[in-house]
Simulated scan of single mutants.
Amino acid sequence: MSGVRATARIVATPAGLPVLSGEGPLALRRTRAAGPGLRVTVVGAMSAPLGGDRLAVEAEVREGARLTLDAAAATVSLPSRTAVPASYDVRLSVGEHAELCWLPGPVISAYGSDLRARTRVELAATARLVLREEQVLGRHGEPPGTLVSRLTVHRAGRPLFDQELGSGPGVPGGWDGPAVLAGHRATGQLLVVGPEFDVKPARPRLLGESAVLTPLAGPAVVVTALAPDALRLRRVLDEAARDILAEWLPDVPYR
């Protein structure tokens, strides 16, 4: 099977970053944090993912540590000569009284591409998580490629959130219909988890015309949003993040 194999690994502790290792297109840089804790930025070092590529990011935030993990640019899923889909796996682990902000750039599904993206998160009972995901269906003026994305979150060993979304050619019909994307070209979600939601539960509410905040069956909320483009999607999610964090997790940085 052809394609690039690369894994970026990060381990964060209250004392620093004992593990900070990137490969191939996944270069890692320690950058200045907006608040307390550590910050690492994923810097794309080459064009990827292409068909057949197997990319992965693994981050472990140990007890008491605080980490913001973001990206310098969007991830563009590109077409290639092989019919084998590319894969991008993210595996995140957050320990007791630890905190992770996972804020990657959007995934852009270019015409002719085929990507399987999966994010798996394991949280301790007292862990905090701010997770943003964005998907853009096609570059400007082109139809999308195929993109299947799944997010799975467990807290204290129990399922908290499990969602999959597919779009583009080869995905069963209906993904662009009125019940799913309704013709929008950008979609995303913001997941916030913390014990603070046990003390002060959130209520479901609409956020403008194309976003909704939904409390989960656990100390967490998820914001799901649609937009005509990536810029407006980011504005919706950023505004939701500022409001949620100000009310429940005011000491968590989000930049």
Score class of each variant (00 low, 15 high):
L206I: 04
A220S: 12
L115D: 09
E96I: 00
T146R: 13
P85Q: 08
I10R: 08
G105Y: 11
P201I: 05
A73C: 07
P85S: 04
T31M: 09
R232N: 10
A45I: 03
R30L: 09
R155M: 08
G16K: 04
R234N: 10
L165E: 02
A230W: 04
T119D: 07
R62N: 02
R205E: 14
L249M: 14
S77N: 13
V84R: 12
P79F: 15
G218D: 11
E142A: 09
Y111N: 08
F161Q: 10
V90W: 00
H140P: 11
R30K: 13
G35M: 03
E63K: 07
T7K: 07
P215S: 06
L100W: 07
D229W: 13
E142N: 04
T7F: 01
A33Y: 01
D198P: 05
L69P: 02
A72K: 03
R255L: 05
W102S: 05
P219T: 11
V153L: 14
H97K: 03
V84Q: 14
V57C: 06
G44L: 08
T214A: 14
E209D: 15
P36W: 10
L147T: 09
A83Q: 12
E164A: 15
V212W: 02
W102F: 15
A72M: 03
G166C: 05
G3A: 09
R235N: 09
R81D: 12
E247G: 11
R235D: 14
A56E: 12
V236Y: 11
A12T: 07
R62A: 04
L131S: 11
D251W: 06
P79D: 10
L216K: 04
A33F: 01
G157V: 09
D89A: 13
A6K: 05
V61Y: 02
E134L: 06
G95E: 00
P250L: 02
A48G: 13
L151R: 01
L226F: 15
E99A: 05
G105M: 13
G166S: 04
G173D: 15
R116D: 14
L100F: 12
T13H: 01
V136S: 06
L237A: 11
A8F: 04
R32P: 05
R203C: 01
P143A: 08
Q163S: 12
P49E: 05
Y111E: 13
H140I: 12
P49Y: 07
L206N: 07
V19T: 13
L17H: 12
R234K: 13
L191N: 05
E247L: 12
H97N: 10
A217K: 10
L123V: 13
A86H: 00
E142W: 13
I244T: 02
A241V: 00
E99P: 00
V130L: 15
R39P: 00
V148E: 08
M46Y: 04
T13C: 03
G157H: 10
P18I: 04
R155I: 09
G141Q: 08
W175A: 06
P14R: 07
R158C: 06
G138E: 06
D89P: 05
L160C: 06
T82K: 02
L123C: 14
V43G: 00
G177Y: 11
A117F: 01
G16D: 05
V171C: 01
V130S: 06
R39G: 01
V121W: 03
K200N: 11
A125V: 02
G141S: 09
E96N: 06
L69R: 00
R185Q: 13
G37M: 03
A156T: 08
S109L: 12
T126P: 08
T119W: 10
A6R: 03
L38C: 02
T82C: 07
